[in-house]
Write a protein that binds this DNA or RNA. Structure first.
Length: 676
DNA sequence: GTGGTTTCATGGGC
DNA sequence: CGCCCATGAAACCA
C-alpha cells in the first residue's frame, strides 16, 4: 500500500554537496584515518593519568575553576580541563593517552599496565584481572576468554589517540556497545539475563579499553555536552564518572598547599526534581542513609561524597553533571545526558519523607555552555505537542505517509523548502514482487526465538537472530533476512523490525550551509533502526544516462571503516570477526534514485564520520541483489543532532564506470577523505 | 504494571 | 598492599 503525497515545490533544488561552513569536526572528529598495523601499533587503549591539581593558587583566596578556561582548546585539539595559564589541573590530558597492545594484555599480575603512572587522589588500578573477588569466589572471567582476542585482527577503529579525544571516546563507547549487544544476544539464547552491560564493562576494564582514566576537575576530553548514555558503565569506561554505582564522583585535589576532597561529577538520577522549566539549576541529594528497611535507615553523614560536595561548595570548583531521564522507548530504562559543568551554590539539611536527615546541594549551571538537558526538555515538549515547535514551514512533509509527522523547519534563512518531490515510504521497484525470487520463510509458531535451530530465518541469518529483543541490530552483516509474509510467526516476532517503519519524530531542517538535513527529536540508540532509503530503483543498464544530474542516488559504495567495522565486538571475546575489509567489499547492483520519489532519507547528508549506516535487509522478496536499504544508528544519537551517513568512496571502483560523480567533501572530520 | 529483592563493579578508605 | 564495603542501577520476581 503505497502512501504518497505531492510535495510543494520549492524555489531551488538544494544539492547535497553544498559546502558546509559549519564544520562537523567538533561533533565527529573521527578516528579512522590512519590505518595502522595492528602488530606494531597498539589498538586504542587510553590512559590519562591524572595530574596534580594546580599548585600556585593563592592560599588566601579559594581558587575557582573558571569556566572561561575550561573549554580552551589548543590548535591540535588537546583539551585542557579547567586549566589556567599558570596552573593546568591536568597538564597532560590527552597527550598522555598511553597505548598498549591488546594482544599482550597480561592476565597475570606480573604486568601491571599503569605502574608508571602517578595517580593522585584516586584512579585506583584495577588488579582484579585474575584472582578472587571479595568473597573469595573465583571471578567469573575465565582466562581463555581473553587469551586469544584480537590476535592481529582489526579490533576497533583506531584513533590517532593524542590528537583526537573525541574519536577515542567514541571508539571506546562503541566498543562497549558492541560488546554489550553481543552479550545480550548470547544471553537471550539462554533466556537468562546476565547483565550484558556489566559483562561488557568487565571486559573493557580488564582489557583497559577506556578513555580518560584518571580523575579530573572540569570537562573530560572527547565528551561533549548532550552526549547520551544508557548504562552507568558507559559513563565509567569513557572516564566521565568513575563509580559504577555511586552518584558522586570525587577526588583529592590540591589547592595551593591545601589538599581537599572535592566532588568532580554527579549523576542526578532524576527521581525528584520537579522544578520543571529550569534546566540551569539542580537540587541534588546527598548519598547514604536511604535503606529500604527502616532498621538500617539513618541520617546522612558528612563523609565521602557528601563531604566532597561540601568542600566543593567552598572551593567553588566545577562539577560535571549527568542527568538521568526516563527512556521514552523503554519504560523501565533510563537515559543519562551529560549536561556540562555546574557549581554548587548552597547546601542545607532537610528531613525527608522517610524521616532521615538528608543533605541537599543546589547547583547552578555555568554560563556559556551549549545546551544539554535543555534540548532534551525542549524536544520532549515538541513530542508531546508538535504544534509547540516553532519555525515550522510545513507540519508534515509526508502528508500522513509516515506514522509520525515529519516537519519542515528553517531557522537559518528564508528558503521555503526543498525542490519538488513525491513523498513515499515505499521503494518503487522495476518489477513487481511477484516476479522476484521469493524469500524463504520459517515455520515458527507465535514468535521466532533466539537459539532455535529449527527456525529457518535464524539459520538464514547465520544462526543468530539479527536483532535483540528490544529491536536493536546486534552487528552489521552483508544482508539481513527478516521474517516476512511467508513466515508462520506473528507480527510480534523480534525478527521484524525495519518492515514496521520509522518510530521517530524526524524533522527536515535547513542546515547552515549544506542545504537541507535530517535530525530527530528523540534520542536514537546505537543499533536502532532509523529509516529506509526509498525511491525508484534504477535499471543498472541505464544508470549512466541521467546520473550526472541526479544528486539523490543511493548505491552501495564501500563506506568508511567506521561503518564497516561496526560489528567489531566479537573479536574481544574470542569470536571470529565478521568485519569485511574494504577490498573485500562487494557492492550490490541496486541503485535507488530519490530524486522524484523519496522519504526522509533523501535529506541525509554525507559525513566521513557518520552517525548512521546503511544495511541491506530483506523481508518481502528474495532478490538479494536488490534488497531494501535500511539505515541504523551507528552510535547513540542525541536529539537534534544531524543524521549523516557515509556516502562511500567513489571513483576507485571499476563498476559503475564512473557514473557516481565525485564531490568534494567538507564534513570537516579529522579523517575526512576529501571527496565522496 | 509495580514494588520489593538480588546482584553487581568500582574504588575510597582503612 | 590487601581487604572491606558503601553505593544505587538494572533486572528479576512475586
Amino acid at each position: 500500500m503505497n502512501s504518497a503525497s505531492n510535495f510543494i515545490p520549492g524555489p531551488n533544488q538544494e544539492l547535497l554537496d553544498a559546502k558546509p561552513l559549519r564544520s562537523l569536526a567538533p561533533m565527529f572528529p573521527a578516528p579512522m584515518g590512519a590505518h595502522v598495523n595492528q602488530s606494531s601499533t597498539p589498538p586504542l587503549v587510553c590512559v590519562t593519568p591524572v595530574g596534580q591539581f594546580p599548585t600556585g593558587f593563592g592560599a588566601g583566596n579559594l581558587p575557582a575553576f573558571g569556566s572561561s578556561t575550561t573549554f580552551n582548546t589548543t590548535a591540535n585539539g588537546v583539551f585542557y580541563t579547567g586549566a589556567s595559564a599558570n596552573g593546568p589541573i591536568d597538564a597532560t590530558p590527552i597527550s598522555a593517552y598511553k597505548t598498549r597492545p591488546l594482544g599482550t594484555v597480561s592476565l597475570d599480575d606480573d604486568d601491571e599496565p599503569y605502574s608508571g603512572n602517578q595517580i593522585t587522589g584516586s584512579g585506583r588500578k584495577s588488579k582484579r584481572l585474575s584472582g578472587l573477588d571479595t568473597n573469595g569466589v573465583k571471578i567469573k572471567r575465565p582466562k581463555q576468554v581473553y587469551k586469544n582476542f584480537v590476535a592481529g585482527k582489526e579490533l576497533a577503529f583506531l584513533p590517532p589517540s593524542s590528537s583526537d579525544p573525541r574519536g577515542v571516546v567514541e571508539a571506546v563507547h562503541m566498543t562497549f556497545e558492541a560488546l554489550r549487544r553481543r552479550h545480550l544476544q548470547l544471553d537471550e539464547i539462554q533466556e537468562t539475563s546476565k547483565r550484558a552491560d556489566l559483562k561488557a564493562g568487565a571486559i573493557m576494564m580488564a582489557s583497559n579499553i577506556r578513555a580518560n582514566m584518571g580523575k579530573r576537575v572540569g570537562a573530560v576530553p572527547g565528551v561533549e555536552i548532550g552526549d547520551i548514555f544508557y548504562f552507568r558503565m558507559e559513563l565509567c569506561v569513557i572516564g566521565l564518572h568513575a563509580p559504577s554505582m555511586g552518584g558522586i564522583d570525587y577526588m583529592s585535589a590540591k589547592f595551593g598547599t591545601d589538599e581537599d576532597s572535592v566532588a568532580i561529577c554527579i549523576v542526578a538520577a532524576g527521581g525528584y526534581e520537579n522544578e520543571d522549566e529550569d534546566t540551569d539549576t539542580l537540587v541534588y541529594s546527598g548519598s547514604g542513609g536511604n535503606s529500604k528497611n527502616s532498621e538500617e535507615r539513618h541520617d546522612q553523614k558528612l563523609e565521602r561524597g557528601n563531604l566532597a560536595l561540601e568542600r566543593s561548595l567552598h572551593r567553588k570548583n566545577e562539577i560535571r553533571v549527568v542527568r538521568g531521564f526516563k527512556d521514552p522507548f523503554c519504560l523501565t530504562g533510563k537515559i543519562y545526558i551529560y549536561d556540562g559543568l555546574y557549581k554548587i551554590q548552597e547546601s542545607w539539611k532537610e528531613r525527608t519523607k522517610s524521616g532521615i536527615n538528608c543533605f541537599k546541594y543546589k547547583l547552578l549551571r555555568e554560563p556559556g555552555q551549549p545546551d544539554g538537558a535543555a534540548i532534551w526538555k525542549m524536544t520532549q515538549g515538541w513530542i508531546d505537542n508538535a504544534a509547540s515547535r516553532g519555525r515550522v514551514i510545513l507540519p508534515d512533509i509526508s502528508s500522513g505517509a509516515e506514522i509520525l509527522p515529519v516537519c519542515l523547519v528553517n531557522e537559518v534563512d528564508h528558503e521555503k523548502g526543498p525542490g519538488h518531490f513525491t513523498y513515499s515510504n515505499q521503494v518503487k521497484y522495476l518489477r513487481p514482487h511477484s516476479s522476484m525470487k521469493p524469500l524463504q520463510g520459517c515455520g515458527c509458531h507465535s514468535v521466532c526465538l533466539p537459539g532455535d535451530a529449527s527456525c529457518a530465518c535464524g539459520q538464514h541469518n547465520g544462526g543468530d537472530l539479527p536483532y535483540s529483543s528490544s529491536g536493536l541490530l546486534v552487528c552489521r552483516k552483508p544482508i539481513i533476512y527478516e521474517c516476512g509474509e511467508v513466515c508462520n510467526c506473528s507480527s510480534n516476532c523480534r525478527n521484524r523490525v525495519t518492515q514496521k517503519g520509522v518510530r521517530f519524530h524526524f524533522e527536515v531542517f535547513r542546515t547552515a550551509s549544506r542545504g537541507w538535513g535530517l535530525r530527530c527529536w528523540e534520542p536514537i540508540r546505537a543499533g536502532a533502526f532509523v529509516c529506509e532509503y526509498t525511491g525508484e530503483v534504477i535499471d543498472e543498464l541505464k544508470v549512466n544516462l541521467d546520473d550526472s544530474e541526479d544528486d539523490y542516488i543511493f548505491q552501495t559504495v564501500c563506506p568508511g571503516e567506521k561503518t564497516l567495522k561496526w560489528n567489531f565486538g566479537p573479536e574481544l571475546i574470542g569470536e571470529e570477526s565478521t568485519y569485511a575489509l574494504p577490498d573485500e567489499f562487494q557492492p550490490l547492483p541496486i541503485k535507488i534514485s530519490a530524486k522524484k520519489i523519496g522519504n526522509v532519507s533523501r535529506f541525509m547528508n554525507h559525513s566521513c564520520s557518520p552517525n548512521v549506516f546503511w544495511q541491506p535487509v530483506q523481508y518481502d522478496h528474495g532478490d538479494d541483489s536488490h534488497p531494501h536499504i535500511m539505515f541504523f544508528a551507528l552510535k547513540h544519537i542525541s536529539p537534534m543532532t544531524e543524521l549523516t551517513y557515509d556516502y562511500g568512496v567513489a571513483g576507485s571502483e571499476s563498476h559503475g564506470s564512473g557514473s557516481h560523480r565525485t564531490k568534494n567533501c567538507f564534513c570537516g572530520s579529522s579523517n575526512c577523505r576529501g571527496v565522496f
